[in-house]
Structures are given as C-alpha cells and as structure tokens.
Design a binder for these strands. Sequence first.
DNA 1: GGGTCTCCTGGGAGCGCTCTCAAGCAGGCG
DNA 2: CGCCTGCTTGAGAGCGCTCCCAGGAGACCC
Lengths: 336, 336
Amino acid sequence: MTPRPTLEEVAARAGVSRATASRVVNGGSGVRQPLIDRVRTAVDELGYVPNHAARSLVTQRHGAVAVIIAEPEFRVFSDPFFQQQVRGISRELTANDIQLVLLWVEEEADHERIGRYLAGGHVDGALAFSLHSDDRLAGLIAHSRVPAVFGGRPGAGSAPTVPYVDCDNRGGARAAVSHLASLGCRSIAHIAGPRDQTSALDRAAGYFDVLIEADPELIYQGDFTRVSGARAMAALLDRRPDLDAVFAANDLMALGALQVLQERGLHVPRDVAVVGFDDMEAVISDCTPALTTVRQDIEYMGRLMVRLLMRLLENPSGHGSDSVITPTVLVRRQSA
Amino acid sequence: MTPRPTLEEVAARAGVSRATASRVVNGGSGVRQPLIDRVRTAVDELGYVPNHAARSLVTQRHGAVAVIIAEPEFRVFSDPFFQQQVRGISRELTANDIQLVLLWVEEEADHERIGRYLAGGHVDGALAFSLHSDDRLAGLIAHSRVPAVFGGRPGAGSAPTVPYVDCDNRGGARAAVSHLASLGCRSIAHIAGPRDQTSALDRAAGYFDVLIEADPELIYQGDFTRVSGARAMAALLDRRPDLDAVFAANDLMALGALQVLQERGLHVPRDVAVVGFDDMEAVISDCTPALTTVRQDIEYMGRLMVRLLMRLLENPSGHGSDSVITPTVLVRRQSA
DNA sequence: GGGTCTCCTGGGAGCGCTCTCAAGCAGGCG
DNA sequence: CGCCTGCTTGAGAGCGCTCCCAGGAGACCC
C-alpha cells in the first residue's frame, strides 16, 4: 500500500500553494483558469482523494447521516415498507453526496450506544422511523441535539420539536371509506391497526370522520399482519353478518380478509367490498380480485425526509423545516 | 449548541496532561489509578466524547466498514436473504464497535462513486455480496485495495484474492438428493437457479454428484422466484410424468412446485417428494405439507463475514484469512 | 547513600485539511 | 503619475487527537 497523496503533494506538483490547491479541489472559485487546470492535472496524475477525516476535523461537517432503524419485532422482515423508504433515502442522500450510516436498534440496551454515537458528532443528522407512540428512541434522538427528521408522525409529546414526514393517513382513510359509501355500502367495517402506531390511529380517525356514528361492533383491531386480518374478518362476519364493506388499515390485513371472504363463499365486491391501504405492489400483486387500496408513495417519503433534513442542516434555527404530509390516492381496482 | 468539550479541557479539569487524559480515554493502561479516576470524573462531568475525525486523522483507522448492496433487480425485496445477512453483519459490527456505512448500488453509473468512496479511505474495509458471476463490482472492490470480504462465492476469476463466506451449497444439495434417493425415489428432478449465480451452480453440482448420469430432461432452470418454480414443475411433469421427486434450488421455487403438484392432484410426498433449499422461515412457515429443506444459517454467515474482515484488518498480509464454508443441514419435514 | 532500572507522566510534533488575513498586482480614476 | 479598489495568491494558524521521546520519581540493590 503506497501512502495516499496529500494536498501538499498536489500543490507542489502543480506549483501552487496548498491553499490554492484546496480551493480548486473544492470548486475552484476565485482561482484563475490556468492554475485550476494545473491543479486538476496534478490531482489526476497523483490520484489524489481528499482525506475525509482531516476535512471534517476543520469543517465540523461529516457528509454522513445516520439512519436509525428500530426493529423491536419481526415486522421489518415481512413488510417492504422499510426497504422502500430506505431506498428513497439512499437515493436522495447519494444525490447529495452524503453517506448513509445504518444504525440498527434491536433492544433497549442499544439505546445508550445510539445516544453516544449521535452525541459523538459522527454524523451531521439523523433519520429515524417513529412507529410506536411509546418509542423511547424518539426522545433520545430529540435529546441528542442532532438535527433529525422522523418518518411517520411521532406519538403525542414524545418529540415535539422534531419534524416528520408522513402520508395523509387520515385523508386517505376518509377517501377509502367515502368511496365505499358512494358505492352504496351501508355497513362498513374497519379492521384497524395496532393502537400504539400513529398511522393506525390516523387511519381509524379518517374512518370515523366519515362514519361519525359507526357501530363499535364494526371495528376490529388487528396488528397489520395478514393473519390478524383474517381473524378480524371472521370475527366481524360473526358479529355483523350484514356487513357489506371492509376498510382494512393496510394491504396485508386486507389480504387476510379477502381470504376469509372467499372461504365463506362471499363474493367480492358484490357481497362485501374491500379496500386496503398502502398499495404495496410486492404484497398485492397477485391477489384476486385486484385490491382497491390507498396509495402512498413510500420511496418519495424517504426522499422528502432527506430534503427536510438538508434544509434543517442549512438552517438550524428550523425555519422552513416544518413537517410534511404527503398526499394519498385511492386506487380503484376490482375489490371495491 | 455549546461546543463539545475537548481532551484538552478534560485534561485541564483533571489536572493532568492531554497525553495522560488520552491514555485514560483509550483504556488507561500504564496510568496510575488515582489519575485514572480523576480523568474519568472529568470526562463524566463535561460529557466528553472523543472527536472521531481528529482521532482517525492520526490513527488512520475509521471504525467503519462499508456494506455494499447491489440491487440490479427487484430481488432484494422479495428475498429475506439480504435482510438476514445484513442483520448478522450489523450485530457483529456493533459487537466490535464498528459502524456500518451502507452503499446501495443501483446501476452501473454508481460504480464510479463506490470506487471513489472506497479509495477515499473513509472505511477500514468493505463487505459485499457476490451474486452474479459477471458482477463488475467484484473486480472494482478487489481493485480498490480496501480489505474486503464477499458473501457468496464470487464467479471464477472475478476476484481471486478476496476471501468469501458461503454455505456448503454443494454438500447441502448432495444431502438433499441423497435423502430423496434413500427414500426410494428413482426419477429425481432438479429445478435449478440462474446460471449466473454461483450458489445455483454449486447446488446443481451437488445434484450431479449424486446422480452422475441424470437425464437432462429432469433438469429445468428457474430463476429463484416462486413463479418460475411453478413453471418448472409443470414443464417437468409434462416431460417426465414418471418423476417421483424434485429438488428445488431454493424454497421459493419449491413452493411454486408444491402448488403445481397440488393443482394436478399429486400427493406430496407419496407421489412426488419435494426438497427445497434455504430453510427461510418467513417463506415456508405456512406451507403444507411442511417443506423438507436444506438449512443454511444466513445470519451466522453475515457474522462470519465480519469476523473474517476483522482478521484481515489485523493481519493485512492475509494469513489465516481464508474463505469460510459454513455447513448446511438437511431439515426433514413432511414433503420428503 | 549512590547508582541503576523501571514505571509514569508531560511536552511537543504532526496527522491533512480549511480558512483567515495580508501581501501582491493590475487596472481605473483623479 | 500616484492612489485606491478589487481580485488572486500564499503564509500560517489551528481543528482535536495520538504517540514518540525525554525527564522525573521511586524502588531496589550493593
């Protein structure tokens, strides 16, 4: 391993000072063309690459952002959600020439490590997903004083100052339920998600926005898994055999519901109309009948998280860095 | 934002020199107890956290490893493989107090960026997955002179010097096929994986190890997806209605095969015995009959990649850093 | 008690870079 | 022709840390 060339050597070869070489490497503004060319040539010839450590020692910037993924459950694996969001994040970070440092949190014990890492000033900012309203991580991040953006609305009070990106869960749910009502459905059930997740709460809220006086018997709480959707559907049918529509809080549960409806010989959408939420292609691509659902652009949300963070970094006071709610779209297919 | 305290300030507060403070922060060997205590107290009181940039500027180490994930296809999403391996990697890196920098490669154009990043000396080493024997990435990494370890055997000649971790694909396949033979099966088909992936090739090689003179009609090539497994099974049944066993190169294809067998009214394992490969719980947990398959411990392989890399970092000459082949185990369930 | 040896400790250089500041220089204007 | 302005350039300080080296303090032996 030959030692890497330094700016000093580049400057010497180009016959300029280290300061000028530095200027050229960093864009070259305020340097006359002939010098720029000489430095560029020297850089190429020597294969010079700036030493990141030295640079961030003086600039106090690291060109890196932490992405914190908490995985208290098995969920990450069955749910393409994270992957899509991380993909969006990764693309946007790359576009900004920023590195992604992945922090994978598995247990409470990891929190101390994460806190130390963030406080250690290794990264310029942090991105995290706030899934559970009781998530201690949210507070930890808010405390670390590192600029951060959440994916998903954090639970009330957990981190009021941290902006987030979320889709319009409530509006999407409203659109779904309104659509079912417009089809003439009279008894619209709702398979809700876990109560400790704001997305589930917001979707349920959208349901109630439309059906203000809905019979509590028409609500059944699942946990976003397919199995829970099936269980919910069975229970709902037992309670209210007259129901003619179901709005499931996510696609996976809608899939479970469809399965039960099929088993019971009920036709979708004639007997019971079904609407999901997410429009997760990997999940519902081969489902029959094709699922009507609410689309959210998860990858785009990931990108927005990065853009929001960038703005926050440029302007730490936080002006112009409010949370963003992305729109949702009802995608009509065959199930409703 | 109050500026972070420096070692200098810690030293001043503890009444020692910066050098001594540094020693304590880095373990404290060769420093007398009373001084250690004083420095520790000062560190706590000031909330001192070492500045990583300054440290790596002088140590030339970064405490970070790049994990390169190439995603030329949609595969990453449907396959829990990566997630498990990344999980193992993440855990092992954390245990070694090393950060994970995720480099997500999407297109050929990203290669230049990756090469620059690796050459830039931001990380101490790199971990990558070698899936496709024609992968240009392998050569790129080998060229960058950064210590690296591959997950999966690289294609011949692409990066001879880079060690890898892979499971005993060939031995596992041998075990699977031998098992089918021992059950009395006479016409054992093989649904192979893509030819450009060494794991698929090795599994096919294992098949041929046992069935040296297998009828070429008994081999059908899929692409590791469920759909391709179904297509393969149908084609094989048409060609050789007498077949009484199938060894699929992965679980997903085995699942597709099972589905077709069921549709054709063939009983598994009475009429046709089926064995898969991977033992991916998320994939086969709810399959009937329970799938007999070859287990590989993917997470463990991820951990091994890290350990191998650590050894490589300690001993750059490469002694004692040979590739590792992890054992596979045949898991007998109902399908064979 | 003096010499030698060992163990701690502090001084100081220097890692590679950015950035401030002042010097140099050309051009324009009085 | 001299002075002022504005643009380039270079010198040098210093970011926070590690580590080499030298010096000092005991401990031990003769």
